[in-house]
Amino acid sequence: MSDQRFIIEMGMGNDQYGQDYTKAAARAIEDAIRHSSIPMFEALGLDHADMRVQVTVGVQDPEKVDCEALMQKLPRGTATVQAVFGGQNVTNPDSGNVLVIATAAVEAFLPKQA
């Protein structure tokens, strides 16, 4: 039996001063999760442990993202996190400071329901 995606949420996060890609990605994931409320678990008697969560974060320098640390912050389900090229880096021309902007797609899957 294959999984069926039942939700996808998008989020955006940034790190304005530290150029920390993991921090920006964590904020993007948190932004996406804050947009979700899934009452079907209680309504249908489903267990959150049966949910598979797949997160894709986009940043300009994916190898600087600690995917394991991000995975540990996800509150429910069995999670995977992948960093890919995306997002933006914006440089302040006056100071040279780089603003790191990350995007996140958080997808949740359950086994197909009868």
Rank of each mutant, 00 (worst) to 15 (best):
A104M: 03
D20W: 01
F6L: 05
V98D: 08
L44G: 07
A26E: 01
E63Y: 09
M40K: 06
V100H: 05
T91F: 06
E30D: 09
A102N: 01
G87C: 09
Q16L: 11
F85D: 12
G87E: 00
L44T: 10
M1P: 14
L70A: 02
I7G: 07
N89M: 11
R52Y: 04
A79Y: 01
Q82C: 15
I101T: 01
Q4A: 11
S2N: 14
E9Q: 14
M1C: 07
G18K: 08
D3A: 15
S36Q: 13
L99P: 06
V57W: 00
D61S: 12
D15S: 09
A49K: 13
A79V: 09
E42C: 10
Q16D: 09
L46H: 05
R27Q: 12
L44Q: 09
A102F: 01
A114K: 13
T22W: 00
V90I: 13
M51K: 01
E42Y: 06
I33Q: 05
Y21L: 08
D94C: 15
E42D: 11
A32E: 00
G18M: 15
Q19V: 09
G86F: 04
A102P: 09
V106W: 00
N89S: 14
F85G: 14
P75T: 03
G77L: 11
S2R: 12
I101G: 07
N89E: 15
N97D: 12
E30R: 11
T91P: 10
A114I: 10
V55M: 04
S2A: 12
I38M: 11
Q113W: 03
K64P: 02
D47M: 09
S36A: 13
G45E: 07
S2G: 11
Q88V: 13
A114R: 11
S36F: 10
I38W: 05
H35C: 03
A25V: 02
S36K: 05
V100L: 01
H35F: 10
F85P: 11
R52T: 08
A24R: 02
I38E: 06
T91C: 15
S2D: 11
H48I: 08
A105P: 06
T78C: 11
V55R: 00
G58S: 01
V100Q: 01
D66W: 04
D50P: 12
G77K: 05
E9S: 14
V84Y: 00
I29V: 12
Q19D: 09
E107A: 15
R52L: 08
D31M: 09
R52W: 02
A49N: 06
A102T: 02
G13Q: 02
A102D: 06
P62W: 04
I8M: 15
I8L: 15
Q82D: 11
M40H: 08
V57Q: 03
